[in-house]
């Protein structure tokens, strides 16, 4: 198994304050890793840092370039576009196909021509997750993907993740519920940053 993502001794910060320090994790092909930790413990910050949306203050992230597909609380779904238009847009951006399969996986075929604004919260969420399938990327970095999904939809999502892993992908998922995946869990609580815990600290120059 080759490693897709390697994180070493990472310190992440939010609003200029370190939240997690010394985080090391790795993710191989076909592997999923579940991030756990109480609210406000820095899961979102860690995921955003790994996705490259914000800089880390220390440590190293090694990842194949352009391999990460990121999905968060906000789906980026446009309410005036129809379901299929939303998906076609992202598939066009990523230059990968698979719109039909994505609709099928999340059972959105019947809703394909409905404006996304007319969807329920759970349906919108499914649309947001189906976007992952049209990115053609191997590492899914997901922040609370199951919010507002019912049990059937969670199973749908777990199935999609399993298929993705079977195809040689990997997933890093922050979630509180049990997805029924054979996956390692990674608790972020022990990595909570403490004052004076390392170099590259916030505003250390001012103290």
């Amino acid at each position: 198994m080759t490693s897709l993502l390697e994180v070493q001794d990472l310190t992440v910060q939010r609003g200029g304050v370190a939240v997690l320090a010394g985080v090391s994790l790795s993710l191989a092909e076909g592997e999923a890793l579940i991030l756990r930790g109480p609210n406000g413990s820095g899961k979102t910050t860690l995921l955003r840092t790994i996705a490259g949306l914000q800089p880390s203050s220390a440590g190293r992230i090694s990842v194949v370039p352009e391999a990460i597909a990121y999905a968060a609380h906000a789906d980026g779904v446009k309410s005036v576009l129809t379901v299929v238009e939303n998906l076609r847009f992202w598939s066009g951006i990523y230059g990968a196909g698979g719109v039909e399969e994505a609709l099928e996986t999340f059972e959105l075929e019947g809703l394909a021509d409905r404006p996304a604004g007319a969807l329920s919260a759970g349906q919108k969420r499914r649309l947001g997750l189906s976007r992952l399938l049209v990115t053609g990327r191997s590492i899914w970095v997901l922040d609370e993907p199951t919010v507002s999904l019912d049990r059937a939809a969670v199973a749908m999502f777990a199935g999609a993740v399993r298929a993705h892993l079977a195809a040689g992908g990997a997933a890093l998922i922050a979630t509180h519920i049990d997805l029924g995946l054979e996956a390692r869990t990674f608790d972020v609580a022990p990595y909570k940053a403490r004052a004076g815990s390392g170099e590259g600290e916030f505003d250390e120059a001012f103290l």
């Binding site: 200029g16 304050v17 370190a18 940053a193 403490r194 004052a195 916030f202 505003d203 250390e204 001012f206 103290l207």
Partner: peptide, 17 residues
């Protein structure tokens, strides 16, 4: 401004515990 930043840093650190 440096003093204000320093204060900011101290308060932030207090909050981190």
């Amino acid at each position: 401004e440096i003093r204000a930043r320093r204060l900011h840093a101290i308060v932030a650190r207090e909050r981190m515990g």
